[in-house]
Nucleic acid binder design. Structure first.
Lengths: 139, 139
DNA sequence: TCAAATACTTGAATCATTCCGGTTTAGTGC
DNA sequence: GCACTAAACCGGAATGATTCAAGTATTTGA
């Protein structure tokens, strides 16, 4: 499905900025807001940072984008939604890499005990050092 | 083991402020920095917020405290370290509740594929609505 | 085509956290 | 017990991602 339709389906208006955000995020690799902003401007010219914040929120609320926020780092966005995959985060360079979920389909949504909570999402972040930084260190 | 010994073992000096921080965090429930600060002052009088930040970092580095940082919320601390348990976080009130790990002993440390990362920690956060907020909502 | 709702703009505010330079204190060796 | 040094602590200022606010522009569907 096209971004345009996805936007409409989520009850959002279609604007050049939003389409550019979707493209930018899709082609990028877990970009932060600033990187998205740069990408959007490269595509469609002047767009304010606040508009990017606004739209990212709207797109996230509408389920078109997933937002991840590793401790101590600004928020990052990706287009892979709905499959509840997980993330590897490099402690040194901050790079984020997707990992599939171990436990099947709509997985990892069930804690051992839910303590009465109504759970709707699980965030799993593996912290470590990425291959590049490892070889960097070895030098 | 006493906090005093734990501090020394981590190569940290023993101060009234630090002991009070340990106590406060132990008796509290995933407190944020401000709450720790209030608790410490109740116990030992004037201590600066910066000292609390400093000490919490030192204690975290020394492995005496675990730090959790759910997206969009200030950092919180707990004394339960080393067992890699997980957390339920309430979307409405921000409350944090411990959950044991599903997968045994030193668990959840192995992603399906590590993509070449050297993984040393896993953060698992289940997002939902806590019992209190649920009954609040039902009203 | 027009009105209403939504999106975008600029500019300022917020707030947790960090940085800095100076002062005090705990711990060690005498 | 005393002095010395490194670690802790202090107040104050800076940072930086994010949000708020109020006005202007654009999309949409009637």
């Amino acid at each position: 499905m096209e971004d345009e339709d996805r936007l409409r389906q989520a009850g959002l208006r279609v604007t050049a900025a939003r389409l550019a955000i979707m493209q930018t995020v899709r082609e990028g690799d877990h970009l932060d807001v600033d990187a998205v902003h740069r990408g959007v401007r490269r595509r469609v010219g002047q767009v304010s940072l606040q508009a990017v914040y606004d739209s990212l929120h709207a797109l996230h609320r509408g389920g078109l984008l997933r937002r991840i926020e590793p401790a101590g780092s600004p928020a990052r966005y990706e287009t892979r939604v709905g499959d509840n995959h997980h993330h590897l985060v490099c402690r040194q360079c901050g790079r984020v890499t997707d990992v599939d979920c171990a436990v099947g389909h709509a997985p990892c949504l069930d804690p051992v005990s839910d303590a009465g909570y109504l759970v709707d999402e699980a965030d799993v972040i593996y912290w470590g050092v990425c291959p590049d930084c490892r070889s960097e260190d070895a030098r």
